[in-house]
Design a binder for these strands. Structure first.
Length: 290
DNA sequence: AACACACACAACCGCAAGGAG
DNA sequence: TCTCCTTGCGGTTGTGTGTGT
């Protein structure tokens, strides 16, 4: 007897990724966030397909992954972009185009979605106004003083729940012989830091400072300044991405004329680049006056 | 006070890449 | 080598909030 399609057992049919019926859409509630965070705390991120099933969340796997990646993941910085971050985005966008994930790898505390939104809503507009064709009557765009939402603070609280899990998972990764990090301080005075991994991955001063500051950030998050109380490691995913990228770039550089990554980084991370953005802002303000 | 509009940000959708079997 | 599945990415849309009339 032929089996009607709608009676195919679940085990036989491939479950659709985003089932239209019974899937909740729209903003996440704090309760959903807690459920998701608790699950990830226990099982770690990944295997997103099983997350809705195992948690009972009426969300599709994509939605869960996105929520985690963009908002719940620890170490995400929210709020205003600094001039330096702004300059990096502008430079990197010019270099890489709309490769938001690649750009985000240089701004480890920011998500690709965040950077993309910031570009689309602020920087694109700013740069457009900076074009010579800009009319003098154009008003300077209002400052990007988007107030942090109250919900952002709630996600921060949720992130704090993850401190313990993150600490353990990072240590596990760090113990892996493939990712052991060797830091070398050449001169403490001028902060010329250098780091090398066994397989030659390099991190810049800026990145190292971020990594070092991460410890302080976690101390604050843990409500303690004691190193023992909250002794976290740098976000390993950042280092892994960095390593991947450098390996990929090594291959890519064989086939094109792109300058070495270290050169680009030096340029991108140059303090003067922040000054360039500030200068641009000043000129834009002047142009709005005249 | 009510409405319309603009803006910023969160979330969704579709496609592509990569991995496993 | 091929197929299927999962994940990640980028573009786009939806929603909430602020501001002007």
């Amino acid at each position: 007897m032929a089996m009607p399609l709608f009676e195919i057992p679940i085990a036989m049919a491939r479950p659709p990724c985003c089932e239209k019926v019974g899937i909740k859409k729209g903003p996440w509630t704090p309760e959903e966030d807690i459920i998701l965070v608790s699950y990830i705390q226990e099982h770690g991120p990944g295997n997103w397909r099983s997350v809705p099933t195992n948690t009972g969340l009426l969300r599709c796997s994509k939605s869960c992954r996105l929520r985690w990646t963009n908002y719940l993941r620890p170490g995400i910085k929210r709020g205003n972009f600094t001039p330096h971050e702004e300059s990096m985005i502008i430079h990197l966008q010019a270099l890489l185009g709309n490769k938001w994930a690649a750009i985000a790898s240089y701004l480890p505390q920011r998500t690709d979605n965040d950077i993309k939104n910031y570009w689309n809503t602020h920087l694109k507009k700013k740069l457009k106004k900076f074009q010579p064709s800009t009319t003098a009557t154009d008003q300077f765009a209002s400052s990007s003083s988007a107030a942090a939402t109250t919900y952002a603070s709630s996600t921060e609280n949720i992130s704090r729940l993850l401190q313990g899990w993150m600490r353990s998972s990072l240590k596990t990764t760090k113990n892996d012989s493939n990712s052991s990090l060797v830091l070398k301080e050449t001169t403490s005075q001028d902060k010329k830091w250098k780091a090398e991994q066994e397989d030659g991955v390099l991190i810049s001063r800026e990145e190292l400072e971020f990594i070092l500051s991460f410890e302080n950030m976690n101390n604050v998050a843990c409500g303690s300044t004691s190193k023992d109380a909250c002794d976290d490691d740098p976000p390993i995913s950042f280092l892994e991405n960095k390593k991947k990228k450098q390996k990929a770039d090594l291959n890519t550089n064989k086939n094109n004329n792109n300058p070495p990554l270290s050169f680009l980084e030096k340029w991108l991370l140059d303090e003067s680049s922040a000054g360039q953005v500030e200068e641009m802002n000043q000129r834009m303000e002047l142009s709005s006056i005249f």
